[in-house]
């Protein structure tokens, strides 16, 4: 069996969720990966991933913004050689892979969290409140991978061969206009080893700045609950939860977050969970390894001071 993995890449490196997708793919068979776009260095970065035997490159500006319409056409053109087509469950993977599946007359399998065998997969349903084991009867499988469920492969150690994809006609029905990306010096939420998240208890957007010294100290990404996003404290890309990002860092610190089911669905696979909340009955304490009942506005400076010792 040979598997093709669509990789998310930026500025010559492979995004961590995609390295998790490669890890998932190695459980299924020989792994080829696809680098689409003119991102210099991305193909070399892909070739260095352990477990990858071939990098297929499609160096065309048409793929630079990862629009689903041309990318799906490219993947469908390559699909004949593969039993499984994979991508990480990122904004790109979720946009592209179902389109690929429909073009191949396949029912996609979204957000796979475990691989049982070549046809059988586990995926969360109902916001992670249940786990479904599903068996596909399609000849080809089209899958997105829940990155938090698979440890990513390393960035070095491999030496795959490169091969250019055949040029095909691409649909010209969608065009990139602009992007507004949040720029941050901090690690990305889905890739961070430590995540510090604030909730409605932060009271306003200004107070979210109080999390930054702590995040800097820990090398952490800053996240938020949906309540904090809906209240307008921070942009939506901070959101951790079923409707936001799914994270599984080594350490997750929830500050002023009550622990709604929808938030827990996005972080309960973290290795160690810390909750700081002044309401001792907050549901977040039911999943926290370490809970501190305290006013966050006194606990935060104390925590920062203690970590500086």
């Amino acid at each position: 069996m040979t598997v093709l993995v669509l990789l998310d890449h930026e500025a010559g490196s492979i995004k961590q969720p995609s390295r998790s997708a490669v890890a998932a793919a190695t459980k299924l068979g020989d792994v080829h990966v696809l680098i689409a776009g003119t991102d210099a260095g991305a193909a070399a970065a892909a070739a260095a991933l352990p477990g990858v035997s071939k990098v297929i490159t499609a160096t065309d500006k048409a793929f630079d913004h990862a629009l689903a319409e041309p990318l799906a056409a490219l993947l469908v053109g390559l699909a004949g050689d593969y039993t499984h087509l994979l991508a990480a469950s990122t904004a790109i993977g979720k946009n592209v892979m179902p389109r690929v599946a429909a073009l191949l007359d396949v029912q996609p399998i979204s957000d796979v969290s475990a691989i049982i065998d070549a046809d059988t997969f586990v995926r969360p349903i109902y916001a992670g409140n249940a786990l479904a084991t599903v068996k596909s009867s399609d000849a080809k499988k089209v899958i997105t991978v829940r990155a938090a469920s698979f440890d990513p492969v390393a960035t070095t150690g491999g030496s795959a061969a490169l091969e250019g994809a055949a040029i095909i006609a691409l649909p010209d029905i969608a065009w990139f206009v602009s992007a507004e990306l949040s720029r941050s010096e901090r690690p990305e939420l889905t890739a961070a080893r430590v995540v510090v998240s604030g909730g409605r208890g932060m009271q306003n957007g200004e107070n979210f700045k109080l999390l930054e010294p702590l995040a800097d100290k820990l090398g952490a990404a800053v996240g938020a609950s949906r309540a904090a996003v809906d209240a307008g404290f921070v942009p939506n890309d901070y959101q951790v939860g079923q409707t936001g990002k799914i994270v599984a860092p080594d350490l997750y610190i929830a500050i002023g977050i009550s622990g709604a089911i929808q938030h827990l669905a996005g972080m309960k696979d973290s290795k160690v969970i810390v909750a700081i909340n002044k309401d001792e009955d907050a549901p977040i304490f039911q999943v926290a390894d370490y809970g501190l009942v305290a006013d966050l506005f006194t606990a935060l400076p104390e925590l920062e001071a203690e970590l500086s010792k």
Partner: peptide, 17 residues
């Protein structure tokens, strides 16, 4: 897709305060 089974996710144990 055939549903082979549906299960509850593993419960996380509450830790210490």
């Amino acid at each position: 897709l055939t549903i082979v089974s549906v299960a509850e996710p593993p419960k996380r144990q509450a830790g210490v305060k």
